[in-house]
Nucleic acid binder design. Structure first.
Lengths: 346, 346
DNA sequence: GCGGCTTATGCAAGCGCTTACATGAAAGCT
DNA sequence: AGCTTTCATGTAAGCGCTTGCATAAGCCGC
């Protein structure tokens, strides 16, 4: 309850009868100070309830022991999980995590990056490759290590996924199952290269089999269950509804599944639904969701390690692509109505 | 790409032909400097690409413009959402958010609190009232505003929910429906007073109607869907399975619902299931989940505002209890088998 | 027993800002 | 015109720590 000003290094030094330099060393390089002195210092520290002041420390040493992360939102399992993993890894190495979310608003992102750089972080991670010119300038001229995550860009080291491949993987699976009429529910693609890549991947896979995915068949919805439901409803209201819909992520897919269930559309009987991300819920939905697994926890951990390594002066690869993988469950099967036999005409 | 050392206030002052004090003022109290000077300074700042250094600023001014939040985990929608709200509110006021997650490990929490205090935060929020003595000492003697969230404790200002009431609300509802045989799936209660309070609330409500909830009927499971599934499976394997199970939170409830569905137990026909939290998914599950709504976004926002206000020197209430509310959906009805008529014997 | 080496510690110069206080110029008053 | 205010700016003293360098022991071998 004592509210007096914090004790300073000076106070400790005085109480212990040594110089401030010694106290400082006792704190950061205990191997350099004699055992007995160390004991006296520790005692003084304990007695004064001394806690070193980060600001002074940062100013004098040039390191803040803080790493920044700028993400679109924490209110999405995918980012929350990666940040959680990152934080755990950092804390284990004596670093702290400063987070900012910008809600997919590029200007807010720029502000966040600027604020972090100003505030002082020893390293920084940002999500994706869609940034304002201003943000890019800040990022590429920053005097601290910066890393991109989730996707790639030649301008900066990056640790991410091949989002386009995720789209291709899942589309190919549907194609192999015999589907020919597709719909897609994507998250908003504005300021979101991941979402755009996934759509592009799906398009590319279909195009490779001679199928076009007109933009009228891809609806953009907010990244929520409700968004997924609305998206599916819209798609199924079309004159010729799709037999398969790929969702930009599992949240949207879960929403689509709920909507199908609510409106009596049998999945996978009458409609196949697939997602991307492989959230925990995907495995538990009815039917369990076929999706593409993205190792987001590992992403967070890898980002943290990469940054930590660079801070130690170790060179790091410019690009690390984390493996993704199709996970087949039961929400997608061959289309009921269309001639599966038409597949692979020989 | 220029990697030379950052420009300092000095450099700017020199370029603009003014003193460092003036530049500093131009930055923080522009109203105090003449327009023309201001222009010259801004120009110099832009030309040098100057970004003020937070460390020096913090040291000189004693404020870090950073607020810390220590939560159990970000990998749970409930915390992620509150943190997101907090961050948004803070960013809008020029503050940044430092987060740490401790995974329900008290010692890690203590370390996190200590690290934040050392690092320098202008204010701090922690979750719940279960803390190590060490942590309490840190918290109560901190020289910066601290606030508890989610639950309450007389030792510190708090903004939270009445978790016990949440338990009572939901249990009373089930009781009113006519249930007499209960089971409960709780999250781990170790280092988690919220979970304990909820169980206690349920117990109290039942006791008030003469029903005992033996600890053999409450199973503790990890806060995941899988945990909920396992919990339900365990409960239903009992000699006399419950007709209603209340889950410590919606994630567990969703898991329980999935398990019921997978094992052919009709909900709410054969079994009523309820949760607490009111996550987005609760409304979309089949059947939609009866639960208790906790305004977590508002919690985050309120915490941020409370702290901000105290930093401005405004007095704030010692205790703010956010309203919670029963939301009745379709996962709970009168028990099929038991005599609903037995209810309220007159 | 003396030069030279290794330790353990102290000295003091900053790190890059903020902010009283001082200064000087312009403006207002009588 | 002389005096007080007011306003814009400069001066300089820190903020609490880190760290390169200097210093002072203690130790070795010859």
């Amino acid at each position: 309850m004592n509210r007096k000003a914090r004790a300073t290094l000076q106070d400790v030094a005085q109480l212990a009868g040594v110089s401030t330099a010694t106290v400082s060393r006792a704190l950061s390089r205990p191997d350099l100070v004699q055992e007995e002195t160390l004991a006296r210092v520790s005692d003084a520290i304990a007695r004064l309830n001394y806690v070193p002041g980060g600001a002074a420390r940062a100013l004098a040493s040039g390191k803040t022991l803080t790493i920044g992360a700028v993400v679109p939102t924490l209110d999405h399992a995918i980012f929350a999980r990666a940040i959680q993993a990152m934080q755990t890894e950092l804390a284990g190495n004596g670093y702290q995590l400063l987070v900012a979310a910008h809600d997919y608003a590029p200007a807010q992102e720029a502000a966040a990056v600027r604020a972090m750089l100003a505030r002082g972080v020893d390293a920084l991670m940002v999500v994706g490759a869609d940034h304002l010119e201003e943000t890019w300038a800040l990022l590429t001229t920053a005097s601290v290590p910066v890393v991109l995550s989730w996707s790639f860009d030649a301008r900066l080291p990056a640790i991410g996924f091949d989002n386009e491949k995720a789209g291709r993987l899942i589309a190919d699976h549907l194609l192999d199952l015999g589907h020919r009429r597709f719909g897609m529910i994507s998250g908003f693609t504005h300021a979101n290269d991941r979402a755009r890549s996934r759509v592009a991947g799906v398009r590319a896979a279909l195009a490779a089999r001679g199928i076009e995915l007109p933009s009228s068949c891809v609806v953009e919805a907010p990244f929520t269950l409700a968004g997924g439901r609305a998206g599916l409803a819209e798609l199924m209201a079309r004159a010729t509804p799709p037999t398969a819909v790929v969702c930009g992520n599992d949240l949207l897919a879960a929403g689509a599944l709920f909507e199908a269930q609510a409106s009596g559309i049998a999945v996978p009987g009458a409609l196949s639904v697939v997602g991307i991300d492989n959230l925990e819920i995907a495995a538990h939905l009815a039917p369990p969701l076929t999706t593409v697994h993205l190792p987001t926890t590992e992403l967070g951990r890898t980002v943290a390690r990469h940054l930590l390594a660079r801070l130690r002066g170790e060179a790091q690869p410019q690009r690390v692509e984390l493996p993704i993988e199709l996970v087949i469950r039961r929400s997608a099967t061959a289309p009921a109505t269309s001639p599966a036999l038409a597949r692979e005409p020989s």
